[in-house]
Write a protein that binds this DNA or RNA. Structure first.
Lengths: 348, 348
DNA sequence: CGCTGGCACTCCATAATGGCGAGTGCCAGC
DNA sequence: GCTGGCACTCGCCATTATGGAGTGCCAGCG
């Protein structure tokens, strides 16, 4: 909000940092005595108490009740994350492990699943990864196969690891050679161009009543259009390790758990949240209520977009309790996003 | 175990029935006074107490502690389900709803997903449906498309709603016409035969060193073999409505929930259990520990196989607390299995 | 002989109680 | 401006009391 940074002393920030770290580690409200021992600064508990009172006035920490220690508020975590955090560099071993797991021959669905499990496995939180957007992927080829009187199979070849099927309902039977002609025409026109471009061209073609379009071409265009528009596979993101969240005292009560898991199943809210991260610049962190979804009130979400050819195509991240080890989690999410992007890039 | 049916009086069975029904409805241990009011039989609480003592000796009911009412044991539920249960006929409205939802144009994966949601939606429990086995499905056609130097796409057409892709890694480039020849050969040989037969034939062909097999045929056979053997999609069953289980008092504690959900994610145990039901004759019910999996100690599982052409191809069912409304759940699972089978059968 | 009412007993649940222990706020003194 | 001291506040925990529900057993009745 306002630039209240000058109002707050260096010492107070040090204490906020120490307090937050301790609370993240132990999960118990932190008292002045503890902090006096652990802060590094050499002050008596009484002094610490004065500073803590200031921090409380600023809304950075609060006590769950009179005469318990203090815990960070959302604003406290925010300040901690934004200005006090010293991220741990990620050890090479883990990076290697991720790279090998993600770099082995995958279609994008299984890549996403693996990434999600990796994230949850390494962080012990819940991992989420959106499926990569396809609009900018290029279409290598289209093939049509007759299935039955009123059905045609469209095969969209996007890369040598990525193929999609669409079953089209058509109004009359088509012969194999008709379909062959259609796909030849389309491949000639569109092969190598990206899906979004193709879609736009198709719409243009369908609107224009060009004289030079024979019946076959028209058929081809219409088929391609319905093939491209056929709904993408339903799940827009993949989640793993939800059960990890049950390990945390603060989330582990029936009411919270239920709210959380029902939200996960609904998918809608999570999807909304993730969508916001596609556009945001780089890594994004939502702490507690910041996300704006009640189900995530006690959680933090750390996300990073991943890109192919410098273009953001998806988002991945983790969900955990607000009291998560940000300094460890952040580099993991960051690295995963980079490796994910690399794994999606065409080889050779 | 033993035929202790004769040892137990008609009256005792009536009481067991009334007690179980009441307990399923209310979730509280049932006392003699309540039962005397509700059993229908006109006996004083004292008499009821005597009978209850007998039932307890037989291991059919137990009291959670001295001076609480009684609740059914697993054996009690078993007897209830096997011999005392009066199933409620399913209302036509629900059946219609299921039929319309399942009968609309689906590939088998989405059919399974829908069935699972339906089950969980109607029962308010967790629904599970295995993917239908394919061995006996017939192969309509195979097509190969070159993708890149070392990759070939195999398209297996199983029906006009069911198509599968396999990406094959091959050791040398193949031309489109080579692949065309291969698929022509295979289609001539195998089209219309079922997958298991095809697989067996292929193995036979590969072993025999028949003189009349030219290089092309050999290639075709090898490709088809690897296409058929490529791992089926990972998930062998689809689950829905897990969160419904959080509604139940008796399951809704962190430890139990965690065990349960981790088990669901692991999939292995559930899969094992469901496999047993494929062979079992018709509907099967596992009550509490009967399933043999600790995670399900407090749950019951009601399953029914579903079939195509009189051949069992999958299993579906629900998981809920032991204290579930069997008389309502059983016909639902049963009906779903029948409708599922119908929906999978080829139309027209 | 089987059913019943009566009675003592057991045990859970709930609330009330009081003593820690941890931590605070404030103040006076250095 | 920092510190020690002190009174105070609360949550936590174990203890205790109370009420209610339900049982087991027994003696009596039809």
């Amino acid at each position: 909000m306002s630039a209240n940074k000058p109002d707050i002393s260096e010492r107070a920030l040090q204490l906020l940092k120490a307090l937050t770290e301790r609370y993240i580690r132990e999960g118990q409200p932190v008292g002045s005595r503890t902090l006096s021992r652990e802060s590094g600064l050499n002050f008596s508990p009484a002094t610490i108490r004065n500073v803590m009172a200031d921090l409380e006035d600023l809304g950075l920490i609060r006590s769950p009740h009179t005469s318990a220690g203090r815990i960070p508020t959302v604003q406290g975590y925010r300040m901690f994350v934004d200005t006090l955090l010293t991220v741990k560099p990620l050890d090479e071993f883990t990076v290697d492990r991720m790279r090998t797991e993600l770099d082995t021959d995958h279609d994008s669905k299984s890549l996403v699943t693996t990434a999600s499990s990796l994230l949850s496995g390494i962080t012990h939180l819940a991992g989420i990864v959106t499926l990569p957007r396809r609009e900018h992927a290029s279409l290598k080829r289209v093939e049509f196969l007759p299935l039955s009187e009123h059905r045609v199979l469209a095969v969209l070849v996007i890369s040598d690891r990525e193929v999609q099927n669409r079953i089209l309902n058509v109004d009359r039977p088509y012969t194999a050679s008709e379909l062959q002609q259609a796909s030849n025409y389309l491949n000639g026109q569109f092969a190598g161009r990206n899906l979004e471009e193709v879609r736009r061209s198709l719409i243009r073609d369908m609107k224009s009543d060009r004289a030079d379009m024979d019946r076959m071409m028209r058929t081809a265009v219409e088929m391609a259009d319905s093939a491209l528009n056929a709904a993408e596979e339903g799940d827009d993101f993949v989640m793993a390790g939800e059960t990890n969240l049950m390990e945390f005292e603060e989330l582990c009560n029936p009411a919270t758990l239920r709210q959380l898991f029902e939200g996960f199943n609904r998918k809608r809210d999570i999807l909304h949240l993730l969508d916001q991260c596609v556009n945001g610049a780089g890594m994004q962190i939502f702490i507690g209520e910041e996300s704006g979804y009640q189900m995530l009130d006690e959680c933090s979400v750390v996300t990073a977009p991943y890109s192919v050819d410098g273009r953001v195509v998806g988002v991945l991240g983790v969900i955990g309790p607000t009291r998560m080890a940000y300094e460890r989690i952040i580099p993991i999410v960051d690295a995963t996003a980079r490796i994910m992007g690399a794994a999606l890039n065409p080889r050779e």
